[in-house]
Amino acid sequence: MPDRRAPRAKPEKSSATKSSRKAPSPRSGGERPASDAARRPPAAGGDTRLAVRKTYKLFIGGAFPRSESGRSFPVTAPDGTLLAHAALASRKDARDAVVAARKAFGGWSGATAYNRGQVLYRVAEMLEGRAGQFTDEVLVAERNNGRESAARDVAAAVDRWVWYAGWPDKVAQIAGGANPVAGPYFNLSVPEPTGVVAVLAPPAAGLLGLVSVLAPVIATGNTAVLLASGPAVLAAVSLAEVLATSDVPGGVVNVLTGRFAELAPVLAAHQDVNAIDLTGTEPADRAALERLAAGNVKRVFAAGPGRVAEDWAADPGLRRLLAFLETKTVWHPVGT
């Protein structure tokens, strides 16, 4: 158990939202990222092997850059243990992510529904293969409900990908249709993706929360800029690593780790973002973000004072799936 030697950092309740706190330097000696051990079985036979730690970076346009700002922030476990220094995304990173998402939109929205479904299913396959890793991460980073509970969350996240993997080639049949107009026209309504969607992910809903907000956005052909904050950041980056190896084209999902206070307004005001999901925000912050979103008539999901806390384990229903769709109606002439 070589990594047990890492000292504990001071307890920090929500490192990601305290923008003014001093970030400990990764090289200051006293604090080191703790325990990779929980994510890896202990070496057999008493051999000690020094763990290889992971660098948690951003995911933009299919690549894993650090923040262009060079900033990072410490991510700690609920008990204060330092887990990692994640990249602290800047406004410029957010804009770059939007550019990447826009660039990927044509290809992804133009891909066949069957293809998108298979890509989402591939994500489930890859995630299933790394379920152990995610279980460990959830266990260490977020909650102390025990390994079984963490494993259940990860399994539910895999299942959610599978559920959404079935939707791309069905949603047009439940959200669109032929309209019986009084004239010689074949009139057809089809749902189309809204475009680039900014997702302010729930900070404390684990991997299942992340998947629950991301999968419906991309299932319908949108591209996403997901902003993760709080305890969810490490799972978000690991999820990005899964996406990068799941045939999801670069730029379809972009993952930023950072502070809502800094980046949410940038995404809400961005003129090339078509919709925003405020799920992860505090109700008190929503009015200001919605005002910014009005600048280009963004579609806003989870607007207003908010409903009762979402039960992520429950049947997700269609609300999220249908939220980021436009209805296009085509009048095609009928004649000889």
Binding site: A182, Y185, T194, G195, K328
Partner: peptide, 27 residues
């Protein structure tokens, strides 16, 4: 990228036909 598309016709309306826009044309 538009909510209503008319082919070989224009400005047709019908109560059975959904109408509305993309982007800054509303939601």
């Amino acid at each position: 990228r538009a909510g209503v598309i008319w082919a070989n016709t224009y400005n047709r309306f019908d109560p059975a036909s959904p109408f509305g826009g993309y982007q800054e044309s509303g939601f």
